[in-house]
Amino acid sequence: MTYDKRKIESVREGYGKALALYGKLNDKVVVLDADVSNSTLTKYFAEEFPERFFNVGIAEAGMIDTAVGLALEGFIPFANAFASLICYRALEQIRTCVSYCNTNVKIAAGYSGISDYKDGPTHHSIFDLAIMRSMPDMTVLVPADSVEAGMMVKAAAELNGPVYLRLSRADMPVIFDYRHKVKIGRGVTLVEGEDLTICCMGTLLGNCLDAAEKLRSSGIYAGVIEISTLKPFDSKIIVDTAIRTGAMVTVEEHNIIGGLYSAVSECLINNNISIPVGPVGIKDHYACTSLNIDDLYEYMGLSVEDIINISKKVIRKKRK
């Protein structure tokens, strides 16, 4: 980890560039988009490999089935659109033809969470992970920064089976560098802790690291772990850190129903571990439109301050 708050990179840029690069190494990779290649940044792949790029127009549901057909012919299709459309509108196609049929389709869901702050709630996806996590045979990947987003292209392509890759529109702090290795199904420890564990999924990881640093100055030693594979879930890292620190905070740009908070809670119950767990996430309501992402994070309770407050709350509960 080489975290520097000031180094900000576009997550979609990391994905788009990596996809074009990986296309060189693997000629089985084909890319589909639904008239948003200028936004998802699959345009880089399209420029390099026009013959392996298919823009199907504004037709997300049909695009998934077309990707399925390509997968059945032995290709590795990356189907791209906004999460709010590829997950919600094309859901039945994903259920039947990708998940149930277990086809090798990579669903690249851009503009996820509330990262498309300007376009508002129609363009947000605040419960896509609840859906995808409950879908049999679906691997669910959530990168934290541009570097990890890029690395997940290869990881997803080289995993045989359906993948939901949740990408952000946002420009976020760079957490990782080229030495980082994405291991599907494995969480990562970024900071060792004693008093509690902040467990993060996705691009709020920078906020978590900032919160841990501030907590340290008030004498609270918070560990930070990252879950970049929501499914299959790394129970071991949760159990280990839960036992060591005795309290946990989950942080996600998603509804607190069905995402990371749920996954962590289920894991703790399954392992008979009873510790306080506090959620930082969207409290089951739609967001709104904003002029910038930070204001919206604050408005939705996802800021550094929110992580600190919930951390202090779980620690108080732990002491009782």
Binding site: D119, P121, T122, T289, L296, Y299
Partner: peptide, 22 residues
């Protein structure tokens, strides 16, 4: 687009008078 404003990025009938459908 401001957090306090009823006008969303895209039309919202529950917030903006005159909008018939989100």
């Amino acid at each position: 687009g401001q957090l306090s404003c009823h006008l969303q990025g895209h039309p919202d009938r529950n917030k903006t008078p005159g909008v018939d459908m989100n």
